[in-house]
Amino acid sequence: MQEIFNIFIKSIFIDNMIFAYFLGMCSYLAVSKTVDTSFGLGLAVTFVLGITVPVDYLLNEYILKPGAMAWLDEGFADVDLSFLSFILFIAIIASMVQLVEMVVEKFSPALYASLGIFLPLIAVNCAILGGSLFMQERDYQNVAEATSFGLGSGIGFFLAIIGIAAIREKIRYSNVPPALRGLGITFIITGLMGIAFMSFLGIKL
């Protein structure tokens, strides 16, 4: 239980998707102009990461890993399908996003309206595929650990995008050098936020 909690905290603060690995930067930069829209995107990313990482974990554990097919038949014990992981992960992500979109539309029209256009965009967000690939590389022990990693990464992204959106709303009233306006200053602020987040590196979990 403690291990699960540690992974959760670690993926939010120490291994933050944006500040430590730059995953999902494209949508992070494009959608962070106002707090409202970035709230929607952050929620959608957390939601989808929390679902796709455990599903991809099961896929990796029972089909893709070297020797993973042994549960099916003794003869499959030396089959290694790990080279297929990219294409299968992206297929799972695209179909899960579609599924989530349909379920949300059916059961919670209000949430659907607020997530709106962000759901389909998420299929090609690097943070989602990155979450699955990191899960594969770090070799988590069970589904619970993978789920807490997925949710934690999503919340880390959520915090980062809300933070930058709030700063960007305020910076509109400051006198930024003309050539640095817009994209340039956003990059530099993100760098400074990253340095601030590095203070969490001292936490030993």
């Binding site: 730059f22 050098p177 990059f187 530099i188 993100t190 760098g191 990253g194």
Partner: peptide, 14 residues
């Protein structure tokens, strides 16, 4: 460290 990559790109854009 990672954050300096962002700042370097920011300066290139500048």
């Amino acid at each position: 460290l990672p954050p300096m990559a962002l700042i370097t790109v920011g300066v290139i854009i500048w």
